[in-house]
Design a protein around this nucleic acid. Structure first.
Lengths: 215, 215
DNA sequence: TGACGGATCCCCCGTACGGGGGAGGGCGGA
DNA sequence: TCCGCCCTCCCCCGTACGGGGGATCCGTCA
């Protein structure tokens, strides 16, 4: 397995190298001290795993991660930082990092983390997982949808897939008038003006979520 | 540390008990075979950690978790299931579980998971973490929006807040006709039919996200 | 039994919406 | 310099949409 290490502190790089080098079958194929060099390194060596520091001069680790991921390189970026800042975690996730761990974790856990991301999985250190879960859960009760009947829920799901009244009628084997009356009752129940606002309410309430079966 | 075990299969309960009992300082203070009994058990014993199966007769593990969490009990629920279904993970997170692991993980990892949630942290098994990150990042699974001009992006954001053409015109100090032409070019660029589908595309692409500034 | 809500369907009507076409000003790249 | 893009505004037109009335059938529940 081929590993690259990116950190602006040579001492940290040496430490990481020492830890990872103790594992058999692993090979540290390159090092970099800033984001620019990190992207170049990843492009040239195409390592399996890249340990990425966040705070670096010039292009920081998050931006470098973004570039590496969006370049479609076969490299799993494991973000490795000193600070337990939640925003770092979220930004790293959004940047496309495969994992997020603190530098101060014991060597065995770091090795395990590298193994996990190399296997195509992901991991966060426990405290981050907690905040992620909290934010995920907290997003849920943004608004609560009023009680909708079975049929109305079906129609709302169809609305959230961008269907017109005619299409919904065809899909559910109904007359357009029936669909219209369902839509009308949905609108009044949700207290919104039109189907677009109904779809927004569906997303905001978690009734439908991005990335779910759109069709 | 006081632990409770909830699973409808007596054999599984015995197995878990055997694994956890091998740790010093841990005490299995109760068992339950369904959700109803789980809530009663948690209320009565107030354990530090509760291992919760999902698939159970009657009230399932997710609903039981919801009740335990919303009751404000000092119990960290570690959801433990056989199936690697993503929806289970998300539902468990929403229900307030502190962790989510598969039954088939090695005993050492299970023990580690109990230790983590008991410490007030959270954890997911790696494959779940990956899907959670992906959904959170909302980059990969979604679609990519074609290039929109500044103005078009403003208009799309307004659309995603449920605004009508007239309202957008007022907000942006434009003529309704201008808004209409922006909307028209958005629709053609996104390849969609109406504003509702445009809003859906905005959510699915991550251009806007649930829980973000709705107003 | 009757009341009630859900689901289905019908008609009328006004309008916001979306398609098509065009036109002018500003600003940066070729 | 001229071309192209963006932003702005204008007109016409057809229709899907949403609001307002209904009506009928069905199950549940009191």
């Amino acid at each position: 397995m081929r590993i690259a290490i990116v950190d602006d502190d040579p001492l940290v790089r040496m430490g990481l190298k020492a830890i990872l080098g103790s594992e058999g079958g692993w090979d540290v194929v390159g090092e970099a001290g800033d984001g620019e060099a990190a992207v170049a390194l990843a492009t040239r060596e195409r390592p399996d795993v890249l340990l990425m520091d966040i705070r670096m001069p010039g292009i920081d680790g998050l931006e470098a991660t973004r570039r590496i991921v969006s370049a479609g390189l076969p490299t799993a970026v494991l973000v490795l930082t000193t600070f337990e800042l939640d925003e770092y975690v979220f930004d790293a996730m959004r940047a496309g990092a495969a994992g997020f761990v603190l530098k101060r974790v014991p060597p065995t856990e770091l090795i395990e983390a590298v193994r996990v991301v190399a296997a195509g999985e992901s991991l966060l250190f426990p405290a981050s997982t907690r905040t992620v879960i909290e934010r995920f859960a907290a997003r849920e009760p943004g608004i609560t949808l009023p009680e909708l009947t079975e049929r109305e829920q079906e129609v709302l799901r169809a609305l959230a897939r961008g269907r017109s009244n005619g299409e919904i009628a065809a899909e559910l084997f109904l007359a357009v008038e029936t669909v219209k009356s369902h839509v009308a009752s949905i609108l009044t129940k949700l207290g919104v003006r039109d189907r677009t606002q109904a779809v927004i309410a569906a997303y905001e309430s978690g009734f439908v979520a991005p990335g779910e079966p759109t069709d």
